[in-house]
Write a protein that binds this DNA or RNA. Structure first.
Lengths: 228, 228, 228, 228
DNA sequence: GATGAATGAGCTTTCATTCAT
DNA sequence: GATGAATGAAAGCTCATTCAT
């Protein structure tokens, strides 16, 4: 019996290939689940639905993940690893000014959430639950780490005099995440209210990417920098 | 049989008081449901849970609302009525400057969401679903109306020269809603990451109210007004 | 919702009516379950089977008993109460000699097991499981009480000189129970091997009742009494 | 494919040694199954459980035995062979008196059941099922043969005047088997009720062996022999 | 008007077995 | 010969709803 064996393998990273800890079928299942959880929520999605969409047998979900719950956790392990903004090297990058770093951070963050909209919607649902065990822990870890790195990044700008001394970093983060997040989760309203139905899906995504980038950069600059 | 008779006509009793169309027991049920839907989602909450928490018979939910689904819709009718920011008179108020109106708007909005956190968490969950029928319609109507009023409000400031000409109002709205919303739905993380566990619940609520107000006003001013 | 409410009512005993703690439908279910558990074992019987045989909906079993497990426990509560041999008054009866009491005991015991063969087969299966929780406790309680009463009964015979001083009461009990029990559970072999297939079921039951009575009384007498 | 080839022919290798028709792995599986079937019953035991306890692959059980059902049958073939009390030579043994033979029979029987308690518990469960196909046949064959031999053995005593003429041999057999059987299957109750928890497992087994031997011999003597 | 009883449909999970190698 | 992967079937249970009073 296979069950859970390779799940805890470390991800081996070579120059080009990232060996996933999950095999093809598992990824297939997780991606079907992700889409459904995003649309209908965890409880609103049945294992039958997932199996059908993933084109696998219903029993295979238990076989590979143990339970629906564990499948969700696996999804967070799978996606969650890349939810860290991988800011470390950027924070230390000496070729960029703090303001360039902030701009890069904003674009990178928008990019990350927009290209993982399904998973992000799952996160939005799950982070509302107070004590979600494994998932809460995972999310808290990611949030804590991201905030620490951004704090350091802003501290650099404060040290060299580019940024104001007193900045409410936690709230600024919440505005960044909250703005992108809210637009992602309510984009159908945004589209309709602002009469953007004529755009193709692709154009629309490009549109909000650009708008968000400009808008958030302006907010960050206004918040962080002295008036010029 | 009683069913659904009076549900959809609000009876305006006097000039100022709107008597709810829902009787005591119905409100009881809706409030229990609201709390549970906020915590565990619509699908994650059983009619039995609601009945238990509301201290009523399980059959009574179908009896009073027709179905679990309809109960949710009733909740949106009940709460949704007051979700309109009631901005009309404020927009027309000639004793306030546009900038004062914006500040009042922000505080009113923060206040509204913070005092209706449970319902707001329900909204956050529900607005993610694309075609939610009645609920989507209700939400869209509210969003559309709110945006129109704010547009008019900002237009006043633009006309009298207080505000910049080119403002991305939709995105500014999304930042307002997204920031408050994200803080509400992830407050347990915010509290832990920023070491605010020592505060009482009440102190913590006061804390975020003040922080949000200051933070969002600064963002709005920076976005709307010319640098001085 | 009904669930488990009246299960813990005390059995009210009036002159003629014994109010069962279980309603008609519950008894119906328990009797269907008893038959099936006897034939196929607890694990070999599905809730579907029980529901079908009892002529009720599958969900009703959970509704009335909570679970399959709890149904079994209810069965032991229902039948177990009468598993006590109700010897108390007989033990104290001064109109009977000890030897008459022993004979009455044997007949009563044979009678009890033969008229409750299904339940008895369930007991035989269940008593093999070492720590069966509620059921083990129930069985132990019954066994302990029965043995205590028989000990007292035999002590009476020993005091008045009818019975031998040194009698292995526990083993004598095991012979009594084991003999009846083994014949009940293997009666189809007994019938075939001893060529009793021509008897009707009723005749056969009468046959073994008589045989057992005679056989066990002889053993008890030989074991308890001095040779004459 | 290998399947079932050699299962049903015992190869008599030398005059005294019977090489089992089952290979090491098969025996391993059967012994794990025996323990589990004894504890939890056939239906209560999953193929996975057996595979785990036997330290083999789950598929191997179907591979070696065809099915779970067939595994059980194989177990009866494996153990059942030795379930015959091998009385033939004893019955014909002219160096022993009938009474000695009966005593030897009792001890041998107690010994057999006590050293094969697991298998015996499986038998107790299975013999309750009315038409168990292969297993019923096997059991009936054993029971029939044993009873015939004992009949002959007792006939010897009757012929030489040691034993009474009218003895209910079938019931006497049932008392023998039933007593040992009932003690084996309810030994945990026996131990507790008679306060024997201080004994080690080994001491306890020795204890009941001795008690049973003495008790059953007394019963047989009283039943078979004239009072002296 | 209100509710205990009842239920069909659906849920997640485990089952024994077979397949492909 | 041996086994990891896979699966249809069935398990026990809970669901939202309706019925009968």
């Amino acid at each position: 019996m296979f069950k859970f064996k390779q799940l805890f393998n470390l991800r081996r990273i070579s120059t080009t290939v990232i060996m996933s800890a999950y095999n093809e079928k598992q990824v297939q299942i997780m991606e079907a689940a992700e889409k459904l959880f995003a649309d209908k929520g965890f409880e609103g999605t049945s294992v039958r639905d997932i199996a059908e969409d993933a084109g696998v047998n219903q029993a295979m979900i238990s076989y590979y993940f143990g339970s629906k719950e564990k499948l969700m956790e696996a999804m967070f392990t799978y996606r969650g690893t890349s939810s860290l903004l991988q800011l470390e090297e950027m924070v230390q990058d000496k070729t960029l000014t703090p303001i360039q770093k902030v701009e890069k951070l904003i674009d990178r963050y928008i990019e990350k959430l927009l290209t993982n909209q399904c998973f992000h919607r799952v996160v939005v649902r799950e982070q509302m639950v107070n004590n979600n065990g494994f998932i809460s822990d995972k999310l808290q870890e990611i949030k804590r780490l991201n905030q620490a790195l951004i704090k350091e990044l802003i501290a650099q700008g404060q040290r060299n005099g580019d940024f104001k001394k007193h900045v409410d970093i936690p709230l600024l983060m919440i505005t960044l995440v909250g703005t992108v997040s809210h637009l992602i989760t309510t984009q159908h309203f945004y589209r309709e209210i602002n009469n953007l139905q004529s755009l193709t899906e692709e154009e629309f995504q490009k549109h909000i990417r650009k708008k968000l980038s400009h808008h958030l950069k302006a907010i960050f600059k206004a918040t962080l920098m002295y008036e010029q």
